[in-house]
């Protein structure tokens, strides 16, 4: 397998194919990533704010809803990119045979893989940005902060999209996708500082949760409230995870298409 055989047009063309499917039902596709954060922000932001009031972030008291907003952006990124990578790519690989069809065109494996990956990342980024816009409208995140956070949203989307693709390449039945969801995704989206500061957890659990990649993404997305001192390490941690996931995913999917 040669990753160097990808061409910009090939990657774009595969991405474009997925985008055309999305575009044909864009309203349905846009609804979950918009409605989900609104529901979360309403439920947790307004519901819990009176009870919680303020939370401590890096030694500073911040309103709970403001603390929550970056966590919701990260969750939007996580869910949309992971599910596109895991479920949709699995279906395209095993039921619709889209990958196999694309490989009868002048596209290389790298083109198809990267196109799929970047599409999963695109969906994560769309969700992250839409969630961010809801937070901006609710006055919980500055618009300029959202613009500056775009590279982070993209990096997180690439990471979790690659994780989704790895799952698609590992599982044999679509139901098995539930295993990483329950073992990784749910613990990650609840424990990594999305809804509450990690330091309220028992120390060992807090440390373990801090190692999960979503923790780094949430910490970084919370930069307008204060940047964690180890932020370069967090950034590096995300890049490292992304690289490992993408490489493993490419290696796992390849033998499903080539023999």
């Amino acid at each position: 397998m040669k990753l160097i055989s990808a061409t910009p047009w090939g990657i774009y063309s595969v991405w474009w194919r997925h985008f055309q499917v999305y575009r044909s039902t864009w309203l349905v596709n846009c609804l979950p990533p918009i409605s989900e954060p609104i529901v979360y922000l309403l439920a947790f932001g307004y519901g819990l704010s009176p009870l919680v009031g303020e939370v401590e972030h890096l030694g500073r008291a911040v309103p709970y809803a403001q603390f929550l907003a970056p966590g919701m952006i990260a969750i939007g990124v996580l869910f949309q990119s992971f599910f596109e990578g895991a479920y949709s790519s699995f279906i395209r690989l095993n039921f619709q045979k889209t990958w196999q069809a694309l490989l009868t065109a002048p596209l290389s494996y790298s083109d198809v893989f990267l196109g799929d990956w970047f599409w999963a990342a695109t969906k994560g980024a769309i969700a992250g940005i839409l969630t961010g816009l809801v937070a901006v409208l609710a006055n919980l995140y500055a618009f300029s902060s959202l613009v500056l956070s775009l590279p982070l949203i993209l990096l997180g989307s690439l990471l979790f999209g690659a994780f989704g693709l790895l799952v698609a390449g590992v599982v044999n039945k679509v139901d098995q996708v539930n295993v990483p969801i329950f073992l990784v995704i749910i613990p990650m989206f609840t424990l990594t500082g999305t809804y509450f500061p990690r330091d309220t957890l028992p120390p060992l659990l807090a440390q373990l949760a801090g190692l999960l990649p979503l923790a780094a993404l949430v910490d970084l997305l919370r930069w307008p409230l204060g940047l964690v001192p180890w932020w370069p390490l967090s950034l590096l941690w995300l890049v490292l995870w992304m690289g490992i996931m993408a490489r493993l995913a490419a290696l796992r999917i390849y033998p499903r298409l080539f023999s």
Binding site: R17, Q20, V21, S24, Q96, K97, T98, Q100, A101, T104
Partner: peptide
């Protein structure tokens, strides 16, 4: 031009 045994037409289109 390649016609494989699978019907891998795109059901989305």
């Amino acid at each position: 031009g390649i016609v494989t045994q699978d019907d891998n037409l795109d059901p989305d289109f």
